[in-house]
């Protein structure tokens, strides 16, 4: 799965629907492409023993819908209902949609869902794994750290968190709003197996995940350095693209830049 195919769908659907959250979805496009392009062991999204994916930063839902579409689990017609009246594809994902494991959108919720899911896998003697994608600013939420402590205490080795470290949040740069640095040291101090990766290298993400011991030892986190709005030059690193929709000219530029 090509990350720029995910990006192209993100741009097309955002433009059609006239909505924002574009920068956040572009930020995770490579991570989502790596997951759905090979890491996640899901032949059938209804198989109870499939790997699980929790998009804890639910506002990047469009990247997830794009991946589900590219895997063939979501038709073009369904995808094109994004953000329309009566759709199952809201701007935050709902588990009633086939392929979405958990409904998310309230930040700070997903990692505890993932911890429970990983604990269930162990109790059921399954080797399935649970991947949970968080935003960096989501780590402002205290409940994230409750789950971090729980997962480490119980050695939930099947749990792999990926933090989208783009340094931005809704109203500002994270270092100015509530500084989380050094984020990798904090997760390490809580007992996690920490890996710093380039969040725009699906190859590196895949290689690191392949080397994880998901059957024994502590849970894992990939602190993934990313650029907010990645691949669209005028969005990169710009706070306003958390919420803004694109006009026609901006859309044409964006599509051109991601190689649409």
């Amino acid at each position: 799965m090509r990350a720029n195919d995910v990006r192209r769908i993100v741009l097309e659907q955002s433009k059609r629907a006239g909505v924002g959250h574009i920068g956040s979805a572009l930020s995770v496009a490579d991570i989502v492409a790596a997951l759905y392009g090979g890491i996640l062991q899901i032949d059938d999204p209804d198989d109870p023993d499939r790997d699980r994916f929790v998009l804890s930063k639910g506002h990047a839902s469009l990247a997830l819908y794009a991946a589900l579409h590219l895997r063939g689990w979501l038709s073009e017609d369904e995808l094109s209902t994004y953000n329309a009246d009566g759709t199952l594809l809201g701007t935050h994902p709902e588990a009633v949609l086939r392929g979405v494991d958990f409904s998310t959108g309230s930040l700070g919720h997903g990692l505890s869902l993932g911890a429970g899911s990983a604990l269930a896998a162990r109790l059921q003697s399954s080797t399935r794994r649970v991947f949970c994608l968080l935003s960096d600013a989501e780590c402002n939420e205290g409940s994230v750290w409750e789950a971090v402590m729980f997962a480490a205490h119980h050695d939930l080795s099947a749990l792999v968190a990926i933090v989208d470290l783009n340094g931005q949040q809704a109203l500002g740069y994270s270092r100015d709003v509530l500084d989380l640095s050094p984020l990798e040291a904090r997760w390490r101090a809580f007992g996690w197996d920490v890996h710093e990766v380039d969040g725009h290298s699906p190859e590196e993400i895949s290689r690191v995940v392949a080397g994880l011991d998901t059957r024994a030892g502590p849970p894992h986190v990939l602190i993934s350095s990313t650029t907010f709005g990645k691949s669209v030059s005028y969005m990169e690193g710009r706070i306003e693209w958390h919420y803004w929709p694109m006009n026609d000219e901006q859309y044409a530029t964006a599509i051109d830049e991601v190689g649409g």
Binding site: S143, E146, M149, F150
Partner: peptide
């Protein structure tokens, strides 16, 4: 003992973990 967990003083996580367990077929 395998089906009992004192999750600590963390009720949000307790309910979140229970949700993850229930999705996989448990009744926590």
């Amino acid at each position: 003992p395998d089906r009992f967990f004192n999750v600590g003083v963390a009720e949000q996580n307790m309910v979140g973990v229970a949700t993850g367990l229930a999705e996989a077929g448990f009744v926590p």
